Amino acid sequence: MKKVLVATEKPFSQVAVDEIRIIVEEAGYKLELLEKYTSEAELLDAVAHAEALIVRSDKVTSKVLEAAKDLKIVVRAGAGYDNLDLDACNEKGVVAMNTPGQNSNAVAELVFGMMIYGIRKQFSGASGTELRGKSLGIHAYGNVGYYVGKIAEGFGMKVYGYDPYVGADRMQAHGVEPLSSVEELYRTCEFVSLHIPANDITKNSINKALLSMMPQGAVLINTARKEVIAEDELLEVMEERPDFMYLSDIAPSNAQVIAEKFPDRFFFTPKKMGAQTEEANVNAGMAAARQIVSYFLTGDETHRVNR
């Protein structure tokens, strides 16, 4: 009987666990849980005989993979997968997957929650501004970007997008005006919402040169990864432009400095919470379980992220 381990320092909701169990056990596999673990040693012990592993933000390192002698597949329940050591997965012959799209709406709704909170002066009673008629730039037009665009349409915003890997026809079909360069996106849009991954190309790519191009009343919203921001240069922009606001689902390393200097021009969630909804939690967990079953039954590698 195949063993599927769900290892989550921050556990899934009980509803999600129940749904995962149904999918796994109906396939004839055994489900094991490691929740709220406090040491790597616990994880190393738990993965020893697992053939499949489901994680959330838990780090699957080369050491974990070395301990998981029987592991065939690991699925990160969520879109980002920088917590998986893909090189080590390749070395050990382990298939690594993510579950794209399952938390996209949750992240998109958070974007607008933060935007409204920011431009309405943190609900302090001071006079703010509105979204209607403003320009929104979507930097990377994937699953989250799509939902951000649809919500923005409801607010009456002018929506633009930049993604070198997505065809202009697709954006246009969704009512998003594609722009030809990242510089054009930042020059055009008062609001820019980041949805780029953190990789060798994108890390520190959101820099002073780009941010300085944004129009008066600029607002940058980051629900991606903090590594994509050149944090020292962001601080320079905020110092030079009293109209600039930064809203993020990931507190930067210099968060305390920003909070002290610009208390009314930032908002950082206490922890990364773009996917922290009941619906996203359940959707991602169920998708991970289904992908494991499909892989074992048919060899389906649709959402594989290592090659």
Rank of each mutant, 00 (worst) to 15 (best):
M171K: 10
A79G: 13
V64S: 06
V107M: 05
G142C: 08
A68V: 04
I73W: 00
L71F: 00
Y117T: 09
A77F: 06
A52S: 07
G149P: 01
G101S: 11
V55L: 04
Q122Y: 03
H139R: 04
F155L: 03
A50H: 01
G118Q: 08
I138T: 00
Q172M: 09
L84P: 04
L53Q: 08
G125C: 12
S62R: 14
S127Q: 13
N83Q: 15
G137Q: 00
L65Y: 01
Y141L: 11
K72P: 06
F123L: 12
V148Q: 00
A152W: 11
L136I: 15
S127C: 12
F123R: 15
A50W: 03
E109G: 04
D70L: 10
A48F: 11
G80S: 12
E51S: 09
S127R: 15
V55A: 02
P100T: 14
K121W: 03
E91G: 15
L65D: 06
A168L: 09
H139T: 11
I73Y: 00
N143Q: 14
R132K: 14
Q102R: 15
M114H: 03
K69V: 10
K121Y: 10
L84C: 01
L86F: 05
A46Y: 12
G118E: 11
K92N: 07
N83M: 14
K121L: 06
V60L: 00
S57N: 10
L110V: 05
A79L: 15
R56N: 08
N90R: 15
G149H: 05
G101W: 09
G145Y: 00
R76V: 10
G133P: 06
E109T: 11
F123K: 13
G142Y: 11
K63H: 09
T99Q: 08
A68P: 02
G167D: 14
I116D: 13
M115T: 13
A79F: 12
M114N: 05
G156N: 04
V107H: 07
E109D: 09
G156V: 05
G154H: 00
L131E: 00
D70Y: 09
A126P: 07
V55D: 00
A140C: 10
R132Y: 13
